[in-house]
């Protein structure tokens, strides 16, 4: 493999996978701590009709309309979930189950009807992503990494994800202490006057953005896995929130890189002539990682618990 082919194929695709993983892992911490991981599942499915409608209306895969559509759909889903829960006086889980599956089904039907008319977007892409389509055509060699003209030509998915990583990372850094408090003691946070509603809807909007930025490249299932697994793994390994955050970020990015390498380049290097689905491989790896932590984590793992203080 030459430098040029690496830079054109594996570098952008692998980096996109890593960035999608790190973005989801960051947000996942707050979901896992607030016991709202399934909100992430719900939002990542519910954004679909928003994306498809934006796509059908604008006729392009441009980032702007899709992000807007996803944010609108995410917001609508959050409001609907709350309405159904209150009116029906049912638990939040069931209310989410109704709303997100309905929105996802609507998105699928819109997609298939659109696809029947020659629209270039399909359900497979939504579920598994199209990492192999993330190409960087500009570079001829390593020098391209320092060449502004070539860098400006980086794939759109990659740039969007990088910008979102930066933006959401900065927001989290700026509001770290209040965010931490709402996770640790929501009642105290509300009593101190922190706006619980603003934080909740902010989180939902961030999730919608992360879901739409990631889904095109890696699919909605990887989003669910990455929201849950790195943060849950880190939660089993440490009690401190800041350590948990960095650990989940590292584990998420690591899963992304390793999973991509195992799925695409490794079989090719071994001369097998085929490759596996990278998004699926990353999700399986993260699940495996969580499974290992559940069994073996030094203090909170099942084996340590059995040995230390029998339940």
């Amino acid at each position: 493999m030459t430098a040029a082919t690496f830079l054109q194929l594996d570098f952008p695709a692998g980096l996109t996978a890593v960035l999608a993983c790190s973005l989801c892992a960051m947000l996942g911490n707050f979901l896992v701590l607030r016991r709202q991981t399934l909100v992430g599942d719900a939002i990542s499915h519910a954004v679909l009709p928003g994306i498809v409608l934006a796509f059908l209306l604008s006729g392009t895969r441009a980032t702007g309309p899709m992000l807007l559509g996803a944010m609108a759909a995410g917001g609508i889903a959050a409001i609907l979930i709350e309405t159904v829960r209150r009116l029906g006086r049912i638990e939040a889980g069931a209310s989410m189950g109704v709303v997100f599956t309905l929105m996802f089904a609507l998105g699928v039907v819109l997609l298939e009807q659109g696809a029947a008319r020659g629209v270039d977007l399909d359900a497979d892409c939504v579920l598994y992503g199209q990492l192999e389509d993330v190409l960087w055509l500009a570079p001829a060699g390593w020098s391209a990494l320092l060449d502004p003209a070539a860098l400006a030509d980086l794939p759109r998915e990659l740039l969007t994800l990088a910008a979102l990583n930066l933006g959401i990372g900065l927001l989290i850094a700026a509001f770290w202490s209040p965010l931490k408090l709402t996770c640790f003691d929501p009642a105290l946070a509300t009593a101190m006057g922190l706006p619980a509603g603003v934080i909740q809807y902010g989180l939902v909007l961030a999730l919608a953005l992360a879901a739409v930025a990631s889904f095109e490249a890696v699919g909605s299932i990887l989003v669910v896995a990455m929201l849950a697994c790195p943060a849950a793994t880190a939660r089993l390994l440490t009690d401190r929130y800041d350590r948990q955050f960095w650990l989940s970020l590292g584990l998420g990015a690591g899963c992304g890189a390793l999973g991509y390498a195992l799925a695409g380049p490794l079989p090719l290097l071994l001369g097998l002539g085929w490759s596996l689905n990278a998004a699926g491989m990353i999700a399986s790896l993260s699940g495996l990682m969580l499974g290992l932590a559940v069994l073996l984590a030094p203090r909170y793992g099942m084996l340590a618990r059995r040995r230390g203080h029998p339940a």
């Binding site: 929201l227 490759s275 699926g280 993260s286 699940g287």
Partner: peptide, 27 residues
């Protein structure tokens, strides 16, 4: 048996298993 709440476990199991299924399907 762990400190993880049910929601995180559901999402983790869902993502992990489905990911494995997708890998096998591509195989």
């Amino acid at each position: 048996h762990t400190r993880l709440a049910e929601d995180a476990v559901i999402a983790g199991v869902l993502g992990g298993f489905f990911g494995l299924g997708v890998v096998l399907l591509s195989l």
